[in-house]
Nucleic acid binder design. Structure first.
Lengths: 131, 131
DNA sequence: CTGTATCCCCTCCGATACTG
DNA sequence: CAGTATCGGAGGGGATACAG
């Protein structure tokens, strides 16, 4: 898929041995981008309460398209943040849940999201008073 | 600037009164995007130890261009995450530091970054053993 | 030293239509 | 129900040159 980026074990030198996100070639930067992408963080937070189905996630995350939900779920699954379980029935029934790593990341993202929600709420009320 | 998005206080209805990031029109989504943008989170983390100058940040954050550093700093300043202090000297001397809100956000982002760095390091060693 | 301006590519993402 | 295919616009972001 990414022929220009070589993350193979053979290439574990320098920044690769000990991940440092400030290093330009650190693989954690890419994972971080996936987790904190526009839809990535909303999906992780939405999965925090537990296993969800595709359509459930779609309803929960307002404004997401099927395309982006599907695509982002695949990326997060490849990163090991999410597990996908297909029931192979007709009609299809697929469930998604957080892996152990994913759950820990989701909690941290949720912390950030809650904090921003609260500070934004405060900020908006402040603006309202001024104007 | 954003004629399509009206965040004016007059428009504080629905999702605006109580920020919910799952709501499509919640302003916190935009702020979250700034904080967690490719360079935004690195800048916040880089500022955690304390006040830094432009060139210091540039050296610290490997791979960032002057353009993106400048642009992202402006965005984060507008969001109230960063404070800018210009000394109005020649040559110019400008210092950046986190605001109170910015510092709290930066800590949470740093938590996430550290966690991902560690899990990536573990993951890379695991891959090395297998192959 | 701390930026801006310009050009341009390339990825993200929405809209729409189609499938097992 | 749970996706995939394709198109196309918007903007993020790099390279380079220039400025106060």
């Amino acid at each position: 898929m990414n022929s220009t980026e070589d993350n193979s074990p053979d290439n574990l030198t320098g920044a690769f041995l000990r991940c440092d996100v400030m290093a330009a070639d650190c693989p954690s930067r890419k994972v971080l981008q996936h987790l904190t992408s526009r839809w990535g963080m909303l999906i992780l937070v939405a999965l925090l309460p537990g296993t969800q189905r595709f359509s459930s996630l779609r309803r929960k995350i307002e404004g997401i398209s099927e395309r982006m939900l599907s695509q982002t779920l695949q990326t997060l699954e490849a990163d090991g943040m999410i597990a996908r379980h297909s029931m192979n029935t007709i009609p299809p029934h697929v469930e998604y849940n957080l892996t152990e790593v994913g759950a820990e990341a989701a909690v941290k993202i949720h912390d950030l999201v809650k904090f921003i929600e609260d500070s934004q709420t405060a900020l908006l009320f402040a603006q309202q008073r001024v104007s």
